[in-house]
Design a protein around this nucleic acid. Structure first.
Length: 276
DNA sequence: CGGACAACCTGGCGGC
DNA sequence: TGCCGCCAGGTTGTCC
């Protein structure tokens, strides 16, 4: 489940092989269903000959700055971007959705088992990006700004952290992690937090995401780095638990509880995160 | 705005 | 061992 740390890890790894390259074309092994915002022929026509000038991230989106337009990719659940030598008859990727041949004999590939991933071409990213909150790891994201935004919102914390318009890049794993670090129950309501608790949550969000990024992301489910290697963050999770993972709370040894909050599997320690 | 829920997808896991 | 059914999850869209 690529979230901010996983997407940022992919962006950093892809810059070296991609910046300065020219995209020759786009090939879709199967007709794209809802994957693109343009018919495949038009998509290929518009991207052919475009240089890759920069690669950045906004929330969970990868943004390739081309000549006069942008390629915007969302990995969703199972999307994977990687670069391989083009002519080598390597084993065909079973879930290959798009191939972008490049001018140096390599190709950028978008693979996606679940078909949730999206690939957009637009003159400007804002044309396809939804409303997004601040980047939690940016210097411009301050405790004061977080507190001011929090005071405008109501509802349970877990749902708030998952709201990309409130804060960008947090997904199910790091939401549970941030709440555990902050010692806040996922069903606590935003309007119930003291200033001190809100500041704890601010630092916890940044800590959870920073640690995940330092460990190259959490390889739970499908996520792999562009070079195919797993991240390491999954070994250090405090509260989030994948299937069959029965590890207790690392702080107090209490079994981790799993509930559903807003249709999402939610994991917390009933001792460290007292219920509202 | 908040909350609930369906839809999109399909591999893989749990259960039998 | 084999088969079935359901779960996982980010986001959008709908409805109340």
């Amino acid at each position: 489940m690529p979230e901010l740390p996983e997407v940022e890890t992919a962006v950093r790894a892809l810059r070296a092989p991609l910046i300065g390259r020219t995209i020759l074309s786009a090939h879709f092994p199967e007709p794209p269903r809802r994957m693109t915002n343009l018919p495949p022929e038009l998509f290929a026509e518009r991207i052919s000959g475009e240089p890759i000038r920069a690669l950045t991230r906004r929330a969970k989106y990868l943004i390739f700055q081309l000549g006069g337009q942008s390629l915007i990719v969302h990995l969703k659940m199972s999307g994977h971007l990687y670069v391989v030598p083009r002519e080598r008859a390597d084993p065909m990727d079973r879930w290959l959705r798009v191939r972008f041949p490049l001018d140096d004999g390599t190709e950028l590939r978008f693979s996606d088992a679940r078909r949730f991933g999206r690939v957009y071409l637009a003159a400007r990213p804002e044309e396809v990006l939804p409303p997004l909150g601040p980047e939690p790891l940016d210097d411009s994201f301050t405790p004061d700004q977080f507190l001011a935004r929090l005071r405008k919102r109501k509802g349970v914390l877990k749902a708030l952290l998952l709201d990309q318009a409130f804060i960008a890049g947090v997904g199910n794993i790091y939401a549970d992690e941030a709440l555990h670090i902050a010692a806040l129950h996922p069903l606590r309501r935003a309007e119930s937090l003291s200033d001190a608790e809100a500041e704890r949550l601010y630092h916890a969000i940044r800590q959870a995401l920073s640690e995940g990024l330092a460990r190259m992301g959490a390889s739970i489910g499908w996520y792999r780095q562009p070079n195919g290697e797993r991240g390491e963050a999954q070994h250090y999770l405090r509260a989030y638990r994948g299937r069959g993972d029965r590890r207790p709370c690392p702080l107090c040894g209490t079994p981790i509880c799993t509930i559903r909050v807003g249709q999402r599997g939610t994991h917390f320690c009933p001792t460290c995160q007292p219920p509202p």
